[in-house]
Design a protein around this nucleic acid. Structure first.
Length: 439
RNA sequence: GCGGAUGUAGCUCAGCUGGUUAGAGCGCUGGAUUGUGGCUCCGGAGGCCGUGGGUUCGAACCCCAUCAUUCGCCCCA
């Protein structure tokens, strides 16, 4: 029985070409959010399990969290999400931070569950949060951040859609408007959440069964059925349309539209799983016909920081997972071809290993990333190796080159080969690298 | 936790209703007079047919179990 070479279930190995892609995605994310004034923070991957017991949906703690006891008998969890951690950090320095805070991180997160498309046990997630603002400007900005990132990846508005809803509005609908108690409302919310996955008749039957006899006699389930078809805040019944939460949501949509985010829509069926959201929630959907699914989302959660015994801090944020994002980018053919970080692959011709060192050192000192083959294989083999490594330039160094101090630089993609001085080679290779950055 | 699909070479797969030494393409590797790839030609390595058990004269193929991968459900950062 030999050892398995497979990575742990639901986790991934990042070979250099995979890591290259990840670095690209993280770079675009960082550039996008930093452009909007967000600063990066980080925290340990381990947290006290208590942190997750206090909040969150119950499921994620009981069944989906990696938890264990450390040698000192402490209950420890591998973080399944970043929001509790960042809330803890803000609470810890509640008094001394300069609000509003614009913070982001790209943590590695774990959840224990059956892996499936777009959902693994281990993933990386960009977390973007704006602390200390209670007005809608915060929501508008955070959605703008999400939009900026997707645009920076080359996505256009026909590729995705931002769906918006409001927990406050839904609470009002469930309670005052439909007359449901808390338990009924919760059951109905979960049902609406998976409405798209079930046949309409089945949904209707289940929805109807949530209502009591009396409520049914009043026709509440009919009212609900009508409501769920509404695609526009303006089409809501007057009692709802004039509710503050509805007006705010409309105001947010208008602001977004004015800021060029024309693919944001109201969606009364949008729920999101976590209980900690308090007001506006949003979710970005992939519109690709074969991958029509939720990509990521977020919303307002004003209560979390306060759980640590300090004055609450109003907060809006979202999390964007690397797996779903990659599916999106692949689906829309938005991933660039990425080349090696190595600029030049040196191929030594003849017995010049010692004599070539000086110029190689020189190239590196001038800022090039230079790998030397070091084998004595024939040049054709060495070229193949360089190509396979996705290195753009091969540099031949032999007796002739060393004498002339002009080295043969070969573009491995075009096959064009020219002799240049060391400093010229540096500027050519750097130019090429620079083009890459502008993508 | 539940249901479906799939496990044959490094990869993608073929292998007819069970019948001798298990195949292809790609990849890998060596060569075509030791300073040049992606084309061509010739040679080579590489498989306990996921694992364990059963049926049979005989199993990659049939049956059971188990593990793994994958899609979906539950749930959803």
């Amino acid at each position: 029985m030999s050892l398995s070479t497979q990575p742990y279930k639901g986790a991934r190995d990042f070979y250099p070409e995979d890591k290259r892609l990840q670095k690209y995605m993280f770079r675009i994310m960082r550039e996008s959010v930093e452009q909007m004034g967000y600063e990066e923070y980080d925290a340990p991957i381990l947290e006290s399990l208590d942190l997750y017991l206090a909040k969150t949906g119950e499921e994620i703690v009981n069944e989906q969290t990696y938890a264990f006891e450390d040698r000192g008998g402490r209950r420890v969890a591998i973080r399944p999400e970043m929001t509790p951690t960042v809330s803890r950090m803000v609470a810890s320095k509640r008094q001394e931070l300069a609000y509003p805070l614009r913070w982001y991180s790209i943590p590695n997160l774990w959840r224990y569950e059956r892996p499936q498309r777009g959902r693994l046990r281990e993933h990386w997630q960009l977390n973007v949060d704006l602390f200390g603002l209670s007005g809608l400007r915060a929501e508008a900005e955070i959605i703008q951040v999400a939009d900026t990132i997707l645009k920076k990846f080359g996505a256009t508005h026909d590729m995705y859609e931002v769906k918006l809803n409001s927990r406050k509005l839904m609470d009002y609908i469930m309670g005052a408007y439909l007359g449901l108690n808390v338990t009924q409302a919760h059951t109905l919310a979960k049902l609406i959440d998976r409405m798209r996955k079930m046949p309409p008749e089945e949904f209707e039957a289940e929805a109807e069964s949530i209502f009591s006899h009396g409520q049914r006699e009043e026709g509440m389930h009919i009212k609900l059925k009508g409501l769920l078809k509404i695609k526009n805040i303006g089409h809501l019944p007057e009692a709802l349309r004039n509710h503050a939460a509805a007006k705010e949501l409309q105001g947010l949509l208008d602001t977004l539209y004015d800021n060029g985010i024309t693919n944001a829509v109201f969606d009364i069926t949008l729920m999101r799983g976590f209980d900690y959201y308090t007001d506006v929630i949003f979710e970005v959907f992939d519109k690709h016909p074969e991958n029509n699914r939720s990509m990521f989302g977020g919303g307002r959660y004003d209560g979390l920081v306060g759980l640590f015994g300090v004055e609450p801090v109003p907060t809006v944020g979202f999390g964007m997972g690397d797996v779903t994002l990659q599916n999106f980018l692949e689906g829309h053919d938005l991933l660039p071809t990425l080349r090696s970080e190595t600029d030049v692959y040196v191929i030594l011709i003849g017995d010049v290993y010692g004599k070539a060192q000086r110029v190689i050192r020189e190239l590196r000192a001038m800022g090039l990333n230079v790998a030397v083959d070091l084998t004595d294989r024939k040049p054709d083999k060495q070229i193949k190796t360089a190509t396979k490594k996705d290195i753009h330039y091969a540099l031949f160094i032999g007796e002739k080159e060393l004498e002339e101090e002009l080295y043969t630089l070969r573009n491995l993609h075009s096959g064009v080969e020219e002799k240049h001085s060391a400093s010229r080679i540096v500027s050519i290779a750097k130019d090429y690298r620079g083009e890459d950055d502008d993508l």
